[in-house]
Nucleic acid binder design. Structure first.
Lengths: 204, 204
DNA sequence: CTTAATATGTATTGATCACTACATAAAAGG
DNA sequence: CCTTTTATGTAGTGATCAATACATATTAAG
């Protein structure tokens, strides 16, 4: 009898606490977020945090995973299903503009902004974030290569260079968003960029 | 009679100490740079630092001013003297690519990377950095407006939008540079971007 | 010399950092 | 009931943070 859980039940909502921690890390970055701020916004005391998430770094890793699964998902989900590479990039940048400027959410991308100096106290986290940025690059690159194979993009197109160009711009959008650039302006930025598509794909 | 300086002479080279502090702030950001690291790399003790630079924040302000005067100068100096807006932007991005990837220097731009979350311990510094980024935007914007008046750019060109586009890309280049992107790749990114110029200026 | 002015090194301030020892509370199993 | 298991709140740990108190050292002025 019972649900199989023995000891004293946890007094806080783990999902909700993790969500709050994620938004705080997203807003302030890993190093600039203190444990006292975390425990305050999560509604628990340090021992509960360490029992549930192992350490500040463990909490960040879970928060980052949650970010990718929930907050950042919409940016990349249409990459493969888009009919053309152009539409894929258009949706990528448009979704980024919207995603980076949602009300009551930290502006910009957590993966770009939460340890941008690449020399924080946890080199593990810095490297993890860098890897995620690199994987995004590879994801877009392979989508563009597919478009070349399908005949959409000319043979001369430098797919790696184009992917790099698009994501460099997207990373810049995170800085702009965090600087207070309006949703309207961010969307216009994305539209302006994609308008130059025909020029961009003929660069070798 | 002497040179007018009374007390005990300072035992460290102020310029050299400031240069070292600047490079450390540039590398690690304001909050992630500790006083013990600063005093170590500057070759002095805390009382000397505070006597010369007032506070950590005062030291950062001087370091930032020095950065603009020396390290970051080359990026913007050709903006007005360039014959065309296209050349101005081309040189801006090319110089950025080179500047962001110099050997034995922190990669990327100090103004973008030293407090990117915009919620560091010193809101004064965050706002100061944001203002500098905004001023760069205005500088480029007015250069583009000049080009429109001179007939180089078509009347339909959205100069504010174009300036925003270029600097968003340049900010992204700082992230890429800090992520380890090679000088060669950064230069190629700049060249790819400017290759789309004819498309970009016809966007309204 | 004495005095004033400035810079120095040592040692330390209270605050905050990430983290934990420990006793207690609340559940299930027996 | 008692034992086991898990979670909790209180109250800390030593380390490091930015910043200083203070006595001493080194210069110029008088």
């Amino acid at each position: 009898m019972g649900d199989g859980k023995r000891g004293r039940p946890r007094a806080f909502d783990r999902e909700k606490a993790l969500q709050n921690a994620m938004e705080l890390f997203w807003q302030k970055g890993f190093d600039n977020t203190s444990l006292s701020e975390l425990t305050a916004c999560m509604g628990l005391n340090p021992p509960s945090l360490y029992a549930s998430f192992k350490s500040k770094e463990g909490l960040f890793n879970e928060a980052l995973a949650r970010y990718e699964e929930t907050e950042g998902k919409g940016i990349w989900e249409h990459l493969e299903e888009a009919a053309t590479a152009r539409e894929a990039v258009e949706q990528l940048l448009h979704a980024s503009a919207l995603n980076f400027s949602r009300q009551d959410k930290p502006k910009g991308c957590m993966i770009v902004l939460s340890a941008p100096q690449m020399c924080g106290s946890s080199s593990t986290i810095c490297e993890e974030l860098r890897l995620k940025r690199k994987r995004s690059m590879q994801l877009l690159h392979s989508r563009l290569e597919r478009a070349k194979r399908e005949g959409e993009l000319p043979e001369q197109t430098d797919c790696a260079g184009l992917a790099n160009l698009v994501l460099t711009f997207q990373h810049g959008m995170s800085i702009q968003a965090r600087d207070g650039t309006s949703r309207q302006t961010l969307v216009k930025l994305a539209e302006q960029f994609i308008s130059a598509w025909e020029c961009l794909i003929h660069i070798r």
